[in-house]
Design a protein around this nucleic acid. Structure first.
Length: 685
RNA sequence: GCCACGAUAGCUCAGUGGUAGAGCAAUAGUUUUGUAAACUAUCGGUCGUCGGUUCAAUCCCGACUCGUGGCUCCA
């Protein structure tokens, strides 16, 4: 996930700054007010950058005192004073020499001059300003900051603000730079908008997939025995997971995909060839060193054994020759014995050396890796048979389990994990087939979004940066340009809304990430669609074309449902755990009013009928009061509750109650069952 | 990995320098029910782990583990 507004890779141009919205100006101004307040409390503080961000603003500060949320009230108190003073945000243009001088005297990002405490980060920021661009200060009261603006008119315009949290960040986002304290806050036009925001956050918190996942028994993360980032799918979560797989399998079957299945590990050669080891090694689990078991190794061992045998024979021969010689030379018995013992010791030494050499040959190991992606395995499936242009496009699909060694601090519920099941497929096609294939993939995305009622999404088209060819991106400038143009054309022609982001491509080609927004307002990359013009070539993948020559196919990597982990995490928040019938872990629960034997039989028959039709149904025939049973079913988020009492049984009815929608009244049993089956089949929302 | 904060029963949480409590859940009874919680009893914890301070540590200090919010990264 990238948020360009938070960590600008390149400086915003003055033009872009001028387009800042009113809310962004308020937030940016709030950052200056925050800096002013911090300086009142800690005059030695040094500031780096303080931009507006998606939900507020921050300012990076270097300060020996560790600011904690406990400090927020007094900082906010100082901020209020500054707001009340209603200072004008005054813009001033200065020369570079003047700015350097003011940074040196500690004036920038300060309330006054601080000769012993130069504004070192401001000096760094100053260097980033291109020659010829005007250098401006903004002043509010005593606080003067190097800043391109823009701001609101007066500090009094920053009326509704609140500090939210503190984090650490590296200066300019580079881990070689010093760590700063990043103080986050938010600001709004007025108090009521801010209250609405915090209310929304509160609501969002209730939808947190980790909380709902635990409540509903969908998944568990057993850090003690299994490990962090390695979720266990409990039966109810697995039910959702399998519904999604069924959906994918049906959709992909209809779209002409072929399903494959591949192992979870592969030899080092695989990832050397794919290029993942050089580019991606730190995201992979460390290698497993296994003894070499190949034919070459067996041959090598045979040779070593033979050599040892030969050496032993030679030693024996030399030894017996020596002994014969001793006898011939007529050594006295005592001398001969000592001499023979010495010769024998030499033989043993030589023999041991040969044996050790043999052992060393047998102990050679090679590295295997847990797969972090399925592509190389699929490439080898492509290579497993001779391919003709008639076989293309070849679409290989798999729900593949991958393992990525994400940094511990990155792990986050189901959203960032170390074991993941990808809705993966690779489409091998000829260049002239590319547009149609790529477009079909995009269409599939849209189809899925409709099923899940996802309305807010955005396609991010990530391209390469020519300056980083050969390092971040494979060094194939022409192929980059060509494939990027192809993708851009498809996007333009299909009319899909997209944004283009330079320098974010995969190392082997341009990609489209599909960003979706959860109800919590979190943005996630759910799905990805990548073009690969490099790796098929590295694997030597070819097909025989019409002109009877071997050609390398293009490869499209696509994962419309991303991973089970992230997608289900997202769906939990999207539906707040209230899944539609087809996805609900417990689709139906039959509740009896009382535990009369004939009634239980009637209820049990309904359970059996539904179960025979693959409906996930349970029965609650306990002696608890019906209100209590309903309460339990509602808190379990059972989609449909079928209440049966004596009245219903006599009429051949069931009383239908839908989670969140209440009692729908008694209806004929047969009709209700038929409706349920139909709704599940249609994956009705 | 880095910064900050946190960890008490299965869950939600209270609490104290003198080795712990509530509600829900679970279990066993009682109850025989009409659309969001019937009643009673019982069970349940080395207060994250390891070390230090102390006569005494769940509480104070330190390290570690894990989690949470961020940073870098990413599906």
């Amino acid at each position: 996930m990238t948020r360009d507004d938070e960590q600008p890779k390149e400086r915003k141009t003055l033009d872009e700054r001028a387009r800042m919205t009113e809310l962004e100006r308020i937030r940016h101004s709030a950052a200056h007010v925050l800096a002013t307040a911090i300086l009142r409390l800690w005059p030695e503080a040094q500031f780096a950058a303080g931009p507006p961000v998606e939900n507020g603003f921050y300012y990076d500060v270097e300060l020996a005192h560790r600011i904690s949320p406990d400090d927020f009230p007094r900082i906010e108190e100082e901020m209020k004073k500054e707001v009340k003073a209603n200072h004008v945000f005054e813009r001033q243009i200065v020369t570079r020499e003047q700015a350097i001088k003011d940074a040196g005297s500690g004036r920038l990002g300060g309330l006054s001059e601080r000769p012993d405490n130069p504004s070192k980060f401001k000096l760094g920021n100053l260097e980033a300003i291109p020659q010829g661009e005007p250098i401006s200060y903004y002043r509010n009261g005593d606080f003067v900051d190097l800043c391109a603006g823009p701001h609101v008119m007066r500090t009094g315009n920053v009326s509704a603000f609140k500090l939210t949290h503190v984090a650490s960040a590296y200066y300019k986002g580079d881990e070689r730079n010093p760590q700063l304290q990043r103080i986050y806050g938010t600001a709004f036009k007025n108090k009521s908008e801010m209250d609405a925001y915090f209310k929304m956050l509160e609501e969002a918190k209730k939808r947190d997939h980790r909380k709902i996942g635990a409540e509903m028994g969908l998944f568990a993360i057993d850090t003690e025995f299994v490990g962090p980032g390695l979720p266990l799918w409990l039966p109810k979560g697995t039910a959702i997971l399998e519904e999604l797989e069924t959906l994918a399998k049906e959709t992909e079957f209809a779209a002409g995909y072929a399903r494959v299945k591949t192992p979870h590990i592969a030899r080092e050669k695989m990832y050397q060839t794919s290029g993942h080891l050089p580019y991606y090694a730190e995201s992979m689990f460390p290698a497993m060193a296994l003894p070499i078991e190949t034919r070459e190794k067996i041959e090598r061992e045979e040779k070593a054994k033979q050599k040892q045998a030969e050496e032993e024979a030679a030693l024996k021969k030399a030894f017996s020759n020596d002994v014969v010689k001793l006898i011939a030379e007529g050594y006295p018995r005592e001398q001969a014995q000592a001499k023979i013992e010495q010769l024998w010791t030499n033989v043993l030494k030589a023999s041991n050396a040969a044996h050790e050499a043999l052992m060393a040959a047998t102990e050679e190991t090679e590295n295997y890796y847990l797969k972090a992606m399925n592509c190389p395995h699929h490439h080898r499936i492509f290579a497993a048979e001779r391919r003709s242009y008639r076989d293309l496009p070849l679409r290989l699909a798999e729900y593949g389990a991958c393992y990525r060694y994400e940094q511990s601090g990155e792990l986050f519920g189901l959203m960032r994990v170390r074991s993941l099941n990808m809705n993966d497929a690779h489409i091998y096609c000829a260049p002239e087939q590319f547009a149609a294939e790529f477009n079909a993939v995009n269409e599939m995305y849209l189809k899925y979004f409709k099923i899940f009622g996802l309305e807010k999404y955005q396609m991010r088209f990530s391209t390469h940066d020519p300056a980083r060819l050969g390092r971040k991106f494979v060094d194939e400038p022409e192929l980059w340009t060509r494939t990027e143009n192809m993708v851009r054309d498809v996007l333009k022609n299909s009319g899909i809304h997209y944004v283009e982001v330079p320098n974010e491509a995969a190392f082997y080609g341009p990609k489209i990430d599909v960003q979706v927004w959860s109800a919590i307002g979190r943005e996630f990359t759910l799905a990805t669609n990548q073009v690969d013009f490099a790796v098929p070539k590295r694997f030597g993948l070819t097909y025989r074309d019409r002109d009877n020559t071997e050609k390398t196919p293009l490869c499209i990597h696509r994962a419309p449902l991303g991973t089970h982990e992230r997608f289900i995490g997202f769906l939990i928040e999207h539906y707040a755990g209230n899944f539609p019938l087809w996805l609900a872990p417990e689709q139906v629960r039959v509740l009896t009013i009382g535990e009369d034997e004939t009634l239980v039989q009637y209820a049990n028959a309904i359970v059996r009928e539904l179960r025979d039709n693959f409906v996930r149904v349970e029965g609650d025939f306990s002696s608890n009061k019906i209100n209590g049973k309903i309460q339990a079913a509602e808190t379990d988020r059972v989609h449909t509750m079928l209440v049966v009492g004596a009245r219903d049984m006599e009429a051949g009815h069931v009383s239908v109650r839908i989670h969140g929608r209440g009692n729908l009244g008694a209806r004929p049993k047969a009709g209700v069952v038929a409706d349920l089956l139909q709704a599940i089949k249609e994956r009705r929302a």
